[in-house]
């Protein structure tokens, strides 16, 4: 197996935390610019989920049609956005691109933001991950999708990186 992001001791994780929840257009613009940078190994977007149907109450089962639940394009890859984006976590090969990321955020985000360094994506399997995926799971996918869901529904591999 190739050395993955999680195995590399030098890789760092940062979290971009905007002061407002951001629209799909802004997410698309921001991630497209970030994708052009060298050294970003994994990205994780998080926010409140947008249901397709009313989950409970008297109107349970009624279709919602939330305008924010839409498709966004990163280069040649199309991805269905199922959350309103509240924070973006990136795994970087090193700190060299931090300034460029800061500049891109300042250009793209219409509101203030914080960038902080820490450990936001898990690097080891939990017991339930192990039970679902077994000992041969790809370490690059740790923490990127829920063990109960299908990998295709939550993880997107950018086509630009297919050859690598």
């Amino acid at each position: 197996m190739e050395t993955s992001a999680s195995d590399t001791k030098k890789s760092i994780q940062i979290e971009i935390f905007p002061k407002r929840m951001i629209k799909p257009d802004t997410v698309e613009g921001l991630l497209n610019k970030l994708c052009s940078l060298e050294g970003i190994q994994r990205a994780f977007i998080q926010g409140p989920r947008l249901p397709t149907k009313v989950p409970f109450g008297p109107a349970v089962g009624t279709p919602v049609h939330h305008p924010v639940r839409t498709n966004v394009h990163f280069g040649k890859t199309e991805m269905g956005l199922e959350v309103l984006v509240g924070r973006i976590t990136l795994e970087l090969a090193g700190k060299e691109v931090m300034e460029e990321i800061n500049a891109i955020c300042e250009d793209t985000l219409p509101c203030g933001f914080d960038i902080r360094e820490g450990r936001f994506i898990q690097t080891r399997q939990t017991v339930s991950d192990y039970a679902k995926r077994g000992p041969t799971a790809d370490p690059a996918l740790y923490g990127l999708y829920d063990p109960k869901s299908k990998i295709e529904s939550q993880v997107n591999l950018l086509r630009t990186n297919e050859k690598e």
Binding site: P18, K19, R20, M21, I22, K23, T26, P48, L84, G86, P110, C111
Partner: peptide
């Protein structure tokens, strides 16, 4: 308790 959307 969530942050507001971009449009406030």
């Amino acid at each position: 308790s969530l942050r507001l959307q971009e449009d406030g």
